[in-house]
């Protein structure tokens, strides 16, 4: 686990950002078929606009920020503000242009299509 801190260390000038948010690795399922690699990621409470997916140089970085609303006095708190963060190495054969993502019931589904050249091909065996 890491704590999210500003790379530029702006904490002194921005006191409202000084509270550190815990970073947690979300649970992930990874599936693959001939056409794509599919990731299911649990991100409860994360809004669509707070999710970032970056693919660069064979690295897939998933990030999602969750702010938990509270009203009144807390009786118990088992979860709180969290930054979901996880990094994967992805094969270079992923067609980055066609990556698609959908969010439903707090689960992010990330489709990583394989490029045409990387798909398995049926080889026809010719009779000699």
């Amino acid at each position: 686990m890491s704590k999210t801190t500003d790379l530029t260390r702006k904490e002194e000038s921005l006191p409202e950002r000084s509270r550190e948010i815990a970073a947690v690795a979300p649970l992930v399922d990874i599936y693959e078929n001939d056409d794509e690699i599919l990731l299911h990621v649990d991100m409860p409470g994360v809004d669509k606009k707070d999710i970032a997916v970056n693919i660069d140089n064979g690295q897939l970085v998933l990030g999602g920020l969750r702010k938990v609303e509270t009203t009144g006095a807390a009786q118990w708190e088992e979860f709180g503000d969290v930054e979901f963060q996880r990094t994967f190495s992805v094969p270079q054969t992923i067609d980055i242009e066609k990556v698609g993502a959908e969010l439903k019931d707090g689960v992010l589904r990330l489709h990583l299509p394989k490029s045409e050249a990387a798909r398995p091909r049926q080889i026809e065996i010719k009779a000699a």
């Binding site: 299911h40 649990d42 991100m43 409860p44 409470g45 938990v68 609303e69 509270t70 009203t71 009144g72 006095a73 807390a74 009786q75 118990w76 708190e77 088992e78 979860f79 709180g80 019931d105 707090g106 689960v107």
Partner: peptide, 18 residues
Amino acid sequence: TNLCDAGDHLEMRVEVPG
């Protein structure tokens, strides 16, 4: 779960992804 007491009502949040 989280439970908050807001005076006239209680508010509970439950994490149920998927």
